[in-house]
Amino acid sequence: MHEMSLIAEMMNMVRESAAHNNITRISRIKLVVGKLTMAMPHSLRFAFHTMARDGLFQGTELLIEEREVAYQCCQCGEKYLPDMPYGQLCPNCGSKASHLLSGRELFVEYYEGDSGKGEENGANTHGN
């Protein structure tokens, strides 16, 4: 259940950014999670619903996008999804030398919210 720590950290980050951007109510958070992190979407949601009790996160929808584990072969450049669970063996040339293209993601892509004063802040405002 490292999902609890991850969600606690996510809430800290979003809370800080929301304060900075004068957002008082968050309607949606988009989280990107690579499958190699073994953070389970249902556990992340459970953790979020357990911890998200204050006004800022009331009724907030948590969107989770899972990313597959993908490698690129260092020998022949082939990009592949491993068929052995997480194994690194190029299906094209058999090399074991590869680097990870995706699967370790663990980040908040964006969140959406209101300032509470009914002000329109404009879409796609860039935070920090």
């Binding site: 996510m10 980050m13 964006y110 209101d114 300032s115």
Partner: peptide, 15 residues
């Protein structure tokens, strides 16, 4: 409604 893009890693503080 505002959309704030973060692209921030959850483990950034720990790292």
């Amino acid at each position: 409604m505002a959309q704030i893009r973060m692209e921030t890693n959850l483990l950034g503080a720990n790292d």
